[in-house]
Computed example of a mutant assay.
Amino acid sequence: MADTAPSAPLSGPPPAPAVGLPVITPTRVVCGILLLAPFVALFWVNSYARLRPAFIGIPFFYWYQLLWVIVSGVFTGGAYLLIRREEARRRADPPPGAGNGSSGADGGTDGAPTEGAGR
């Protein structure tokens, strides 16, 4: 097999990332914890692998798991509502630099290239 060389050499620095709203926010961290908590609680079997305390004659092992079905639904619904609220806020508040009246890609106000553009 012949070694293949890149078709075009890389020239110049890589493009700067777009400045916008952060991806990881406190709301998303809370949602992640809400979604992760049921997994941790149910995969840690030693914490609930016992018979007592019984609830209406049902051993702890069973009613604890059934309780987590309800708690998981509440946590998932809460995470959903938090994410929807954050996404609505993101759509309402444009990122800095967006919608500030500049029509050119270079940041000019009249759409004409500025001095030194296109080099």
Rank of each mutant, 00 (worst) to 15 (best):
M1F: 07
T4S: 05
P6S: 10
P6V: 06
S7A: 14
A8E: 11
A8N: 12
L10Q: 07
P13I: 01
P14C: 02
A16P: 00
A18W: 10
A18S: 12
V19R: 12
G20R: 10
G20A: 08
G20P: 01
V23Q: 03
I24Q: 06
I24M: 05
T25S: 13
P26E: 13
T27L: 13
V29I: 15
V30A: 15
V30T: 13
I33R: 03
L34E: 00
L36F: 15
L36Y: 14
A37N: 01
P38H: 09
P38N: 07
F39P: 01
L42W: 07
L42H: 03
L42R: 09
F43E: 11
V45Y: 08
V45D: 09
V45F: 10
N46Q: 15
N46P: 02
S47K: 10
Y48S: 02
A49Y: 15
A49F: 15
R50K: 15
R50V: 11
L51I: 09
R52N: 15
P53V: 05
A54H: 07
P59N: 11
F60D: 07
F61R: 03
Y62P: 02
Y62T: 03
Q65V: 03
Q65C: 07
L66R: 02
L66Y: 03
W68E: 08
V71W: 05
S72T: 15
G73S: 04
F75L: 15
T76N: 05
T76D: 02
G77K: 06
G77C: 05
G78P: 05
G78R: 07
A79I: 02
Y80H: 14
L81E: 10
L81P: 05
L82M: 15
R84I: 12
R84H: 13
R85P: 00
E86Q: 13
E86V: 08
E87W: 06
A88V: 01
A92E: 08
P94I: 13
P95C: 00
P96D: 02
G97H: 04
N100T: 13
N100H: 08
G101F: 04
G101Y: 06
G107H: 04
T109E: 10
D110H: 07
G111D: 05
G111W: 04
G111E: 05
E115K: 02
E115Q: 09
G116W: 00
A117S: 10
G118V: 10
